[in-house]
Simulated scan of single mutants.
Amino acid sequence: MYAAVRESPVGTDALRAFAAGAEADATAVRWSYRRDFGRVRLLMVDSRAARVLEEGKRSMLDPSEAAWLREQALDGRGSYDHLLIGTSLPWLLPHLVHDVEAWSSVLCRGDKGPRWARLGERLRRGADLEHWAAFPESFDRLAELIAEVGTGPEAPATVCVLSGDVHHAYVAEPDWPGRAAPDARVVQLTCSPVHNSIPPSIRLGFRFGWSAAARGLGRVFARHGGLSRPAVGWRRTGGPWFGNQLMTLSAHGRSAVLRLEHARQEESGARLTTVTETRLSG
């Protein structure tokens, strides 16, 4: 499309035709892309338009998109030191939120009957239950891909899942129960830099979502839905942080440093101040 627009004196017709085609069939256009910055590989994944929403076949990524992600992650493995997977929707959520989203997906599928299915659909739409947790098989497939990429002598130093969407920031790290963890350090880095105003009640809700009590409550939903344990467990290792903020990931060789900064208003004007700095590898 870029080439077509450059070749035309105006390019409007080509751009309009492209937009119309994308609107008619979102899967006809790949919005995902790969960029290699030295020995850092960035895979930006379309976790919005590439979904399959037909009940019984629901998936965060359609087969073509999933195959593309796998191909790009495994291509030339050993030629990069850090793999960044960008998905606007977090992979690892507070445990209670994860279990409720997975439970809702079971209800909507009709496993508990039509009355529960109607309740599940109202809940899914009303509460925007649309993250990776709402697509349990996709959640597990991403976990398996990350484990495969991150294991062995050609494994990168880090695999970082980069997300926003949830109006606050946190760091979470997975583990693989019953099997050896990947050689790479795997982290979910979530930051919503410019966020909606969050009242104290919602902040308390986010904090509670990571608590042991919330995890226990989430298991109640999971048992009711007959859900098996997800492919990974995880724990929060940073946050939650609230406010306008930026996360910066700095890589040099096989070392990586994460910095979180908050925007603060001072007499001299607004400025960023460092809240935390953590070495992820090296």
Rank of each mutant, 00 (worst) to 15 (best):
His262Asp: 14
Lys112Asp: 07
Ser79Ala: 15
Ala49Gln: 14
Ala26Thr: 15
Thr87Leu: 09
Arg235Cys: 00
Glu277Val: 12
Pro156Asn: 15
Arg219Ala: 14
Arg70Gln: 08
Gly233Arg: 15
Glu54Leu: 04
Trp68Thr: 10
Ser105Cys: 10
Leu53Ile: 09
His98Gly: 08
Gly253Asp: 09
Trp241Arg: 13
Leu107Val: 03
Ala180Cys: 01
Val29Gly: 01
Thr151Leu: 05
Gln245Arg: 12
Arg279His: 10
Thr190Arg: 01
Leu107Thr: 03
Thr274Arg: 11
Val100Leu: 08
Pro94Lys: 15
Thr87Glu: 09
Ala251Gln: 06
Asp62Ser: 07
Ser79Ile: 04
Val186Cys: 05
Ala181Ile: 03
Thr278Gln: 08
Asp36Pro: 00
Trp31Ala: 13
Arg185Ile: 06
His131Gly: 06
Ala222His: 12
Arg254Cys: 07
Ser32Tyr: 12
Leu43Pro: 14
Val5Asp: 04
Ala214Thr: 10
Glu130Arg: 07
Phe37Ser: 07
Met44Phe: 10
Ile146Thr: 08
Gly205Cys: 08
Gln72His: 05
Arg34Phe: 00
Leu83Trp: 02
Gly56Trp: 06
Ala213Cys: 09
Leu142Trp: 06
Ser138Phe: 11
Gly86Gln: 04
Val52Phe: 01
Ser138His: 11
Pro199Ala: 15
Ser163Asp: 15
Ile198Tyr: 00
Pro240Ser: 14
Asp75Thr: 02
Leu258Cys: 14
Gly78Arg: 11
Gln188Gly: 14
Gly113Pro: 07
Asp99Phe: 00
Gly38Cys: 04
Gly150Arg: 01
Thr276His: 01
Leu89Tyr: 11
Cys191His: 06
Leu162Arg: 00
Gly86Pro: 06
Ala270Ile: 11
Ala133Ile: 03
Ala14Tyr: 10
Arg34Ser: 09
Gly152Thr: 07
Arg125Trp: 13
Arg124His: 13
Val171Lys: 06
Ala3Lys: 09
Arg215Tyr: 04
Trp91Gly: 04
Val159Cys: 06
Leu217Met: 13
Leu272Val: 02
Ala102Ile: 03
Met44Asn: 15
Ser197Val: 14
Gly205Met: 05
Thr151Met: 07
Glu54Lys: 07
Ala169Val: 09
Trp103Thr: 13
Phe242Asn: 02
Leu84Phe: 13
Asp111Tyr: 02
Ala214Asp: 08
Asp99Lys: 00
Gly233Val: 09
Leu272Thr: 03
Pro174Gln: 11
Leu89Val: 13
Asp165Pro: 06
Arg39Met: 04
Arg51Trp: 05
Leu142Tyr: 05
Leu15Cys: 12
Gly152Asp: 04
Asp128Glu: 02
Arg51Ser: 05
Ala169Glu: 07
Met1Glu: 15
Ser32Phe: 08
Arg259Leu: 08
Val232Pro: 02
Ala213Tyr: 07
Leu142Asp: 12
Val29Arg: 11
Gly209Thr: 13
Asp62Pro: 07
Asp81Val: 02
Ala256Trp: 01
Ala213Trp: 10
Asp62Thr: 05
Ser88Ala: 10
Val40Gln: 01
Leu15Val: 15
Met44Ala: 15
Glu55Ile: 02
His131Ser: 12
Val10Gln: 03
Ala50Val: 05
Tyr170Trp: 10
Trp132Asp: 03
Val10Leu: 03
Arg279Asn: 09
Gly209Ser: 14
Phe221Arg: 06
Ala73Ser: 11
